[in-house]
């Protein structure tokens, strides 16, 4: 009991005192996840909408692929991106490995299928009257799809937030591509993995508590959006 409660109170102290290691890991986590989700939104939302509203041969295959990619293991993404951006890889000249940019690349790849899939689901579940209504009021095909997106804004925001929840909590990509560099690419998750291994439970627990707080906020947001 003593061990656990001591650890817990030390963890709370670390949070309350804005311990620089904690603050750094939290801001790196959030910064990288936000950049990733920004890019994933720019790619995933249009992809989900296009697949949702158009008919084309192979559509079912594309949907199945998107579903499969949703479960993409983070370490596989880490491995693939590592091979591409390492100095020996095709994009080696850019010197991206072990930088936050590398983590953004990996996490963007992780988030795109999630954002696209949830967007697709929202589009498929949309009121079938939306597009005809826009068309008969004089909207062009693109304008009617824009209106569709506008009507589905809460569902699409939920898709984006679900993607954020995934990347902020993942550890594989952050560890492999970021290298867990203190104050630079060390995120909440990589720090937890490392600190626990080193026996620094208090720091790990402090970060774990914050991470759970972030997850809680994300889910709260999702709940609110899904009720609208």
């Amino acid at each position: 009991m003593g061990f656990l409660s001591d650890t817990f109170s030390t963890a709370l102290d670390l949070i309350a005192s804005f311990d620089p290691d904690v603050v750094n890991a939290v801001s790196t986590s959030l910064g990288v996840a936000l950049w990733s989700i920004l890019f994933a939104t720019l790619a995933g939302v249009p992809a989900g909408v296009v697949v949702g509203v158009t008919e084309f041969p192979g559509k079912r295959a594309v949907i199945t692929l998107l579903n499969t990619l949703m479960a993409l293991p983070t370490v596989v993404v880490g491995l693939a991106v590592y091979g591409i951006i390492s100095r020996q890889g095709p994009l080696g000249e850019l010197g991206l490995l072990f930088t936050p940019k590398a983590m953004v690349i990996g996490q963007t790849i992780l988030a795109i299928p999630i954002v696209a899939n949830y967007t697709l689901g929202t589009v498929k579940g949309a009121d079938p009257r939306i597009v005809p209504t826009a068309l008969t009021l004089g909207a062009g095909p693109l304008q009617s799809i824009r209106q569709l997106v506008q009507e589905l804004r809460f569902g699409i925001m939920a898709a984006v937030i679900a993607g954020f929840g995934r990347v902020v909590a993942e550890v594989g990509v952050a560890m492999m591509l970021g290298g867990n560099i203190r104050g630079y690419t060390r995120t909440m998750t990589t720090a937890i993995a490392m600190e626990t291994g080193k026996g620094e439970f208090a720091l790990g627990l402090a970060l774990g508590l914050i991470l759970m707080g972030v997850a809680l906020l994300v889910n709260l947001f999702l709940n609110i959006l899904q009720q609208r």
Binding site: D127, R129, I130, T133, T136, G138, A139, Q143, Q147, E151
Partner: peptide
């Protein structure tokens, strides 16, 4: 052609927004 004709559905769909935005939609498109 569609800009000369408009169809009012039997259970019409109103866009999520103000009444003004709904009515102005077609004008905005034009």
């Amino acid at each position: 052609l569609r800009r000369q004709v408009t169809l009012l559905h039997q259970s019409p769909y109103l866009f999520n927004g103000s009444v003004f935005a709904n009515i102005a939609f077609g004008l905005k498109m034009r």
